[in-house]
Design a protein around this nucleic acid. Sequence first.
DNA 1: ATAAAAAAGTTGCACTTGCAACTGATTTAC
DNA 2: GTAAATCAGTTGCAAGTGCAACTTTTTTAT
Lengths: 212, 212
Amino acid sequence: MRSPFDGLTDFQKNKLFILLGTHIYPYKKNQEILPTIKYDNIIAIVLDGLAEIVNIEYNGNETIKEKLEKNSVFGTNISGTNYEDYQIIAKKDTTILVIDYDKLINPNNLNHNYFNIFYNNLFDIINVKFKEANERIRILEKKQIRDKLLDFFEIEHKKTRQKNIYLDFSLKNLADYLAVDRSAMFRELKHLKEEKFIEVNGRKITLLYKNL
Amino acid sequence: MRSPFDGLTDFQKNKLFILLGTHIYPYKKNQEILPTIKYDNIIAIVLDGLAEIVNIEYNGNETIKEKLEKNSVFGTNISGTNYEDYQIIAKKDTTILVIDYDKLINPNNLNHNYFNIFYNNLFDIINVKFKEANERIRILEKKQIRDKLLDFFEIEHKKTRQKNIYLDFSLKNLADYLAVDRSAMFRELKHLKEEKFIEVNGRKITLLYKNL
DNA sequence: ATAAAAAAGTTGCACTTGCAACTGATTTAC
DNA sequence: GTAAATCAGTTGCAAGTGCAACTTTTTTAT
């Protein structure tokens, strides 16, 4: 995954932090991240560790919205994450860098080369995330589970051009991603298997239809 | 709506076009826009006119994905619009500016002040669009039409803090936005009316529940 | 190595939804 | 100003889905 600090030396990185007046917050495993920052207009970066954006429902069910690894970027202005709806939990000891969005947008900084590199990286990262969001919307727009699955398969297939799709998450997570009931998804997967559209072996899904 | 050229004089705008090696394409009403540009990595701006991103299904049904007014920004890297799935149609005579994404990202340009202003504007516009995309995802994730409607009402209510919501699009369009069947949505609206949750008068929806 | 937790997989049932097919009301076009 | 098109609103019905409640398998933790 692309890092917002690609192309920067550690020295430049530190100059950047000073220039932007950033804050660094350390969290222990299982601590909630940024619980006090409920206002808008920040961009946050995982400097180290691992965290998850989770949605805790009234019945206690937890669904993971996004995994935040090292160099992941998040925040109200960048991922639409609404702190009223979600909690961010450290899964390991985790260090978070917080940047004020308005300071980032301030063009006074633009004559520093290391800032420009950083800004370009962020621009690119956001565009990738935006593209992923639109991919998901395209899937969620489909009304039937079968169509959501086939759309998902098609999108994944286009990325590798291979008939085998290797999921790097569980089928339960896939159901969450498609925003459908898990058991209903399993039922539909079974139908697709029976109709020889696909084969499923653990997290490997094989597409059997002709049009590659 | 914010323009990507906010804060730029016409003179600076033209310098910018030259710097970025942009292309300008004119289209007549009802013409398809950018039909030949099937490759990735462009950002396009509506300089003048009006266009619509439409999804034409195999059965001939057209759904409008997005309206592109003057100063709207679109393109594969910015709206996730996939030219394989959608068509962009000029609704009036329309002029389109096309920028090569790689040229935009090239940091060599960053010591021109007018470029920086433009770049900041784009950054901001994309973030707003991204936020809207995430809003929609939050709605589409809901499994029941009732929950989608209530979620939509809540989001709209938060924007104005008023109990009246004035739609600037048709109820048919709302059904498309929620990605549900139109008649099923009407049925659910009727239920919500009967249960005194809402009132509907044309495109005005009044929220009747207590928690403002 | 074993217990605990999470994921995989299945099924019955009630309810929701999509779909088709209407009628009537509004808007748009020329 | 009238025709055509779009939108609003309703209903029956079949099919799809969510939900609950299970069992079995796999993974994770200590």
